[in-house]
């Protein structure tokens, strides 16, 4: 090694004893390879989607969704939350490690004082982050749009809890003994609103929607978003609605009016 090069730590560490030119060429080559290798996995997945699905998903004839009217939702009423807890066997106690598949959220605009209270649950997204990040595919979206956790596959890594923008996923941190036969849930797995899939499959409305109607508020509506004749689709075509964090482009299946 030459003595005069000793004082140049950066160049020295990279280029070593070679002629500067070949070293530079080699570095460039390597950087190129590194970039290619780094991008390869992502490009592969994207390319696969583009090739196999032509860049878009086929529109399924059924997409279950909800319409929540924050103007009709009554502050202080938690009939939907109670109904969910009762039907799915969840605790009524909102402790920090207890699951809340559905919760009442109150938002206030600090500038104008505008306030609304409404339920938030799993938004059953078209391209949910929870489905994307799940390493085992336990978090999945049914063809009819309901997003579920297949607890047979869930390993309890909680990546979906990290990824969900709606805080709709919970992790079961305790031994569960008093499950409902139609809502299996257990320690060590992630869970969230199932849109009461057993009820929906039996032709009924989700428990929260039924409870809201029973309470007389009619703030929640359930139905097939892709059936233009369904009540919910008709309503959605008439009133202005939005989805929470629409900017993320996940395509939530739960629409809100009045927020």
């Amino acid at each position: 090694m030459n003595d005069e090069r000793r004082g140049q730590p950066l160049i020295d560490a990279v280029a070593g004893d070679e002629a500067p030119d070949s070293a530079r060429r080699r570095l460039l080559k390597m950087a190129g390879a590194a970039v290619a290798l780094t991008l390869a996995p992502g490009v592969t997945v994207l390319a696969r989607d583009l090739v196999l699905k032509g860049g878009r998903k086929a529109r399924s004839p059924v997409r279950y969704g909800l319409l929540i009217d924050a103007n009709a939702c009554k502050t202080g009423c938690d009939a939907c939350v109670r109904a969910c807890q009762d039907y799915n066997g969840l605790s009524h106690d909102p402790g920090p490690d207890n699951a809340q598949w559905i919760r009442k959220v109150t938002i206030t605009d600090p500038g104008t004082g505008f306030t609304r209270s409404f339920p938030v649950m799993c938004q059953h997204c078209e391209d949910g982050a929870c489905v994307d990040v799940c390493p085992t595919g336990a978090s999945f979206r049914r063809p009819d749009g309901i997003v579920l956790v297949d607890k047979h596959r869930c390993i309890g890594c909680r990546y979906c809890l990290m990824a969900c923008p709606y805080k709709a996923r919970s992790f079961v941190g305790r031994v569960v003994t008093d499950q409902r036969p139609w809502a299996p849930r257990g320690k060590g797995t992630a869970e969230g609103c199932t849109m009461c899939v057993e009820r929906v499959m039996a032709g009924k409305q989700p428990a929260c929607v039924a409870a809201c109607q029973k309470a007389g508020h009619k703030a929640m509506m359930f139905g097939n978003l892709h059936d233009p004749k369904s009540a919910i689709a008709v309503r959605l075509s008439k009133v202005a609605t939005t989805t929470i964090r629409a900017d993320l482009g996940m395509g939530p299946g739960v629409h809100y009016r009045g927020i």
């Binding site: 109904a83 039907y87 409902r180 139609w182 009820r199 499959m201 039996a202 009924k204």
Partner: peptide, 9 residues
């Protein structure tokens, strides 16, 4: 007792 879920169960 829980609002019924039809025949599937």
């Amino acid at each position: 007792k829980f609002g019924g879920i039809g025949g599937s169960n």
